[in-house]
Amino acid sequence: MTPKIPPYIPMDTQPPIIEIENVSFAYSGEPVLRDVNLRVLPRDFIAVIGPNGGGKTTLLKLILGLLKPDRGRIRVNGDPPHKASPSIGYVPQDVHINRRFPITALDVVLMGKLDPKKRWSRRSASNRQDAMTALDRLGMADHARSRMGMLSGGERQRVFIARALVTRPKLLLLDEPTASIDTRGQAEFFELLKEINGEMTILAVSHDLLVISRYVKSVACVNKRLHYHDQAEITGEMLESMYPCTVEEVCPVELVAHGLPHRVLQDHEES
C-alpha cells in the first residue's frame, strides 16, 4: 500500500481528513459553489453554516461522492470521495426518510454493515452484536425492536448516528442534525457529539449556528463561496470580513465569536 500523502503538507500539520481544492459546482448551469477551498484536520468539529440554497447540502454531497465537482479536486482521507465514502459515517436529514417504512431500529443500524461485496455474510451474529453495541451506546438498546415510525425525532436521530458509527468511520457527517430535536434534547445531543468527537472528525451542516456554536471548533460559512474560520482566529474583525456570507439576502445565521472571552452574537449589518 502506498502512503496516502497529499503532495504538499506543511511540516507541522497532520494530513487533512477532508481536502477540497478550487471546487466549483453548478446545477444545470446555475452555479451553486464557486472556487471552494477547505482543509479539515483530524478531530476537528466543524460546522458548515449558511443560508438555505447557499450550497451547504451540495458541499456535503460532494464530500460524500454523491455528486461530482465540475471543477477542482476533493480528497477524503487521501482518496477520491467515491472510494472513501464507505469510511464516512453519514447521518441524513430525518425529513428525507419515509417514516411509514416498515423497519426496526436494529435493522436500520444493520444497514451500516451493508457491504455489497460480501453478499452472504451480512446478517452474521457479530454484525448484530456490533449494531446492538452501537444502539446501547446511544441509549437506544431498549428500542432495538421498535418500528422507526414509533420513535421520536431525537430517537430516530440517535438510531441514524448508531448506523453511522457501526461503519467505524473516521469522519462523521451530519445534515441538519438539530432539525428534528426539541430544544431540551439538543444540549444532550451535542454533549454526545462532543464525546464522539474524541474519536473522529465531525462535520455538521446547520442553518442554526446558535445551537451548534458552543460545541464546534471551527466554522465554515457557505454561500456559493466558502469562508473557513478556525476557532483561534475568529475575532470581531473577522466577523466583519465574513460579510460576503450575506451577499444578496440578509444571512439568516447569526455569528458567534469563539476566541473572545464571552460569546458574542453579532447581527449582520442590514445594508
Binding site: 465514502s85 464507505p86 464516512i88 444497514m111 451500516g112 451493508l114 457491504d115
Partner: peptide, 23 residues
C-alpha cells in the same frame, strides 16, 4: 432474496445505500 439487503437499503435511504457501495 438475492438482492434483498440492497433493495431494502435503497428503498429506505437511497443516499446511504449509495455511500455503502450499493449500485
Amino acid at each position: 432474496i438475492y438482492y434483498f439487503q440492497d433493495l431494502l437499503a435503497m428503498s429506505y435511504d437511497e443516499e446511504f445505500a449509495q455511500i455503502r457501495g450499493v449500485p
